[in-house]
Design a protein around this nucleic acid. Structure first.
Length: 586
RNA sequence: GCGCCCGUAGCUCAGUUGGAUAGAGCACGAGCCUUCUAAGCUUGGGGUCACAGGUUCGAAUCCUGUCGGGCGCACCA
């Protein structure tokens, strides 16, 4: 969903970055600060330690040296400027030269109103400037249903795509269908076996090396229904290509269904076979040869233990060493067909035609091929000016556990845990959120028992619980005749303002997470919000004056309900980015 | 042998891209809670950020090296 013209008001944190810049301008105008210094290193952020105030800037420290003055002197001048701002309660110099700002409560109450005004768009950013990012994720081989090995990359990629959209990019969600390699030939033969089975032939056990899974049985039945026994005894040359196309189409339907269970829908499925049929790899090779980036040479022996059947061979090689790879890589095999890399190179060039930046989400087992594909993108897109920015995000494996015991899986017998099984057991939202509670490059456990546990230890539950609690409070209040309203929010106290300050960080968390391509930061932030909300709620146990609903004080009740509503809004906005539905009751 | 990722409290992990006295949950200790709707709340102890150098106002974060763990090292995908 593209929203080209989004109305965004400046959020508090963004506004203060501007205020500090304006204060520096004023110092330049006054001659206190030399003009033209780079301010790239100047930051305006909330300090880690809340006792230091609401916002801190390092401006005096990073500019003192180039300005030929000392941090204290510069800070003193800057403080004088910043104190003029109406929303600043105090500005003081601390530590080695930080300036700590304390904002008036009016500043935070304005921000609370801004959440209400912007609603689902609070946190949406224009940072991306409408540039297009292509995110390629999942891209599982079309030879069977999705299993849990694919799950984390799918969720991380999808959440990242949403995050980038929310941060002001146009996003293309793309799936690369590897329908040209040897594995889809095997798939075609496996489908033929099931086809003969459907025709009632005596077929014996599944031949060694073919896919044994039951999911091919309906594919064989469909082929039998469509073609009768026309190909039952025909030589492979007559049916292989046809069965490959049919079987791949069936597999992709199945994969799309699996992805839909996770709420994932790609914009574009790009076929490797079509890419090759269109001659894209040839085009790439010709161009690279003209640049002397592809040459005919002898392939280096693989590192480490040498395979028994290794022998030197001359192949067309891409000069990836020129771009930081360890050795040059073949783009064609000795039989003249394209290597995976040869096609992938052309594919990435194709993606770069319609995007300003590329992101690939890969499993960590493909880490070894990152350098060559980055080299290829740099070579092919860098010819005229600057290369298309391209990142590969590696996602580590997930260990499946049940009550702490590893779940047994065997590829040989075809018994793997399918994604569909897991989603059916614990639910889409639990799977998605859990996959985002760890940075992707770290290994993680997924314990069926723990992810559905109804306790504070389980961040999924605890966060949903916070949202449901807000909703139920609003329902109860409505039944008693109270509605959220901002009129009396000036009466909110320090504990309430602390919550406002926390949720007000959402917009900058979104921007930081998008810039770093790290959707898990949203999940951690939301867990913090949930924790703070529950703590506040529990104040009411001992202190009835801290409850949301105060029958004796209607004005304050409406103000607290207003606060609760906005906290709920931020939780919903964050969860929406992660593709998780916020529950209203539990 | 080479490359990539990782190494933070007893355990599982965060750490705002270089900021101030390194944080959270679990576990452990202590106290509270029978609930405005609940599966709990408050609080305490616990650290050589693997190690050694370097870069600078300032390093868990960046650079170099060492140690330890994981993954990878086909014309496979």
């Amino acid at each position: 969903m593209n929203r080209p013209f989004v109305m965004t008001t400046l959020t508090l944190h963004a506004a203060f970055a501007g205020h500090v810049a304006a204060a520096l301008d004023a110092l330049e105008a006054a001659g206190t600060l030399p003009a033209g210094l780079s301010r790239a290193a100047v930051t305006v952020e909330p300090p880690r330690d809340v006792t230091h105030g609401d916002l801190a800037t390092n401006a005096a420290m990073v500019l003192a040296k180039p300005a030929g003055t000392n941090p204290r002197a510069l800070a003193t001048a800057l403080v004088a400027e910043l104190e003029k701002l109406p929303l600043v309660e105090s500005a003081e110099i601390a530590g080695p030269g930080f300036i700590n700002l304390r904002l008036t409560s009016a500043a935070w109450l304005d921000e609370l109103r801004a959440i209400a005004a912007l609603g689902a768009d609070y946190g949406r950013s224009a940072m991306g400037g409408g540039t297009t990012v292509n995110v390629e994720y999942v891209s599982a081989n079309p030879t069977g249903p999705m299993h849990m090995g694919h799950c984390r990359g799918a969720v991380v990629g999808d959440a990242l795509a949403s995050l980038l959209e929310y941060a002001g990019h146009k996003v293309i969600r793309e799936y690369y269908v590897n329908d040209a390699g040897a594995q889809v030939q095997v798939l075609a033969r496996s489908a033929h076996y099931r086809y003969r089975e459907a025709l009632g032939r005596d077929i014996g056990p599944v031949p060694e090396g073919q896919y044994p899974g039951d999911y091919l049985i309906p594919v064989g039945q469909a082929l039998a229904a469509e073609f009768g026994d026309r190909y039952a005894d025909a030589p492979e040359s007559e049916w292989l290509a046809l069965f490959r196309v049919k079987a791949v189409a069936a597999m992709m339907d199945m994969i799309r269904d699996d992805l839909a269970l996770l709420g994932i829908k790609h914009d574009l499925f790009s076929s490797e076979a079509e890419l090759q049929a269109a001659g894209k790899p040839e085009e790439a090779e010709a161009w690279l040869r003209s640049q002397d980036l592809v040459y005919d040479g002898e392939l280096e022996a693989p590192k480490g233990k040498l395979p028994d059947d290794w022998e030197p061979v001359a192949l067309p090689l891409f000069r990836s060493t020129k771009f930081g790879d360890d050795q040059d890589r073949p783009i064609k095999k000795s039989d003249g067909t394209w290597t995976y890399f040869g096609a992938d190179l052309a594919y990435h060039f194709q993606k770069a035609q319609s995007a300003d930046a590329l992101v690939d989400i890969w499993g960590a087992d493909h880490a070894g091929t990152v350098k060559r594909i980055k080299a290829a993108v740099a070579a092919m897109t860098g010819a005229k000016g600057k290369p298309t920015p391209f990142e590969v995000k590696l996602v580590q494996m997930v260990a499946l556990l049940r009550n702490g015991e590893p779940v047994k899986m065997s590829k040989r017998s075809g018994t793997f845990v399918t994604l569909a099984d897991v989603v059916r057991e614990v639910g889409k939202d639990v799977v998605r959120f859990t996959m985002l509670t760890r940075k992707p490059e770290a290994q993680m456990d997924f314990d069926f028992a723990k992810v559905v546990e109804a306790s504070k230890d389980n961040p999924v539950f605890y966060l949903q619980y916070a949202h449901a609690r807000i909703c139920s409070t609003l329902r109860k209040a409505a039944a008693e005749g109270f509605a959220p309203a901002p009129d009396a929010i000036a009466e909110l106290g320090e504990e309430e303002l602390a919550l406002v300050k926390l949720v007000a960080q959402f917009p900058r968390i979104v921007e930081a997470a998008a810039a770093a391509r790290e959707p898990h930061r949203i999940a951690f932030f939301l867990a913090d919000v949930a924790s703070a909300f529950h703590s506040y709620w529990n104040l009411g146990n001992d202190r009835p004056d801290k409850r949301f609903i105060l029958p004796q004080n209607g004005a304050l009740t409406t103000a607290r309900l207003f606060l609760g509503t906005q906290i709920g809004q931020v939780v919903r906005n964050g969860l929406a980015v992660l593709g998780v539905v916020a529950v209203e009751e539990m």
